[in-house]
Structure formats: C-alpha cells, structure tokens
C-alpha cells in the first residue's frame, strides 16, 4: 500500500484513503460549444498515457475530500510530488534511467 502526501492535509496518508481521478491539467473548456467535433473528442478521450512521469489527479476521498494533483512515475509507481489542484504543473528533472 502506497503512502500519498495530501497537499491539503500536509500529511502522508495510506493509499486506501485516496481515489485516482485521471490525468491532470485537462481543463474543461469555458465554452464547449466553440470546439469542433475533433477537438471535443480529444478533450474527452485522448490522454497522454506516458511511460514514466505522469501528471494525474487524486482525491483524498476518505480524508479531507480535496482533489489534488500528483506527478507519479508509471514505471516505478512512485509519487514524485503532489500539489494543490489550482497550481501549475511543476517542472521535474528526471533522473537518467527514467525516460
């Protein structure tokens, strides 16, 4: 069971308190009607699915209830960092043996 740092509680809590919520930094368009069909399809369904660093959303659902963002390495399953939902994507320097 992983430990996940909740940026709102500012504490490491066990994974069972959390729920995964998909890729991060995909903002809902302010006016979806302005998007053509392909753009809307991409918004709905196209995800990066990287090997390595992945920016993703989690919710501390059985804790403070907040959605937040995390950078996690999909190879090692390790969390690199977590940050509040409103914050921009942090710049992360990857070590050499991760892509």
């Amino acid at each position: 069971m992983l430990l996940i740092h909740c940026p709102y509680c500012n504490a490491e809590r066990p994974e069972v308190e959390f729920a995964y919520a998909g890729e991060a930094h995909i903002a809902r368009p302010t006016d979806p009607s302005q998007l053509d069909d392909d753009q809307w399809r991409d918004h709905l369904y196209i995800r990066s699915n990287p090997r390595g660093l992945h920016y993703e959303r989690w919710r501390h659902i059985h804790g403070c209830g907040r959605f937040f963002n995390a950078a996690r390495d999909t190879l090692s399953d390790k969390f690199v960092t977590t940050y509040k939902a409103s914050l921009p994507r942090p710049q992360i320097v990857q070590s050499e043996d991760t892509p």
Partner: peptide
C-alpha cells in the same frame, strides 16, 4: 486503520476509512 493510530496526538481527529 492503516495509518499510525498511536502517532495521533490526543485532541486530534480526522476522516479515514
């Protein structure tokens, strides 16, 4: 409970599973 209950300070609380 999966977290360290013993480490909870008296006078504290939280939601958990």
């Amino acid at each position: 409970i999966a977290f360290d209950v013993d480490a909870m300070a008296p006078g504290s609380g939280c939601r958990t599973i």
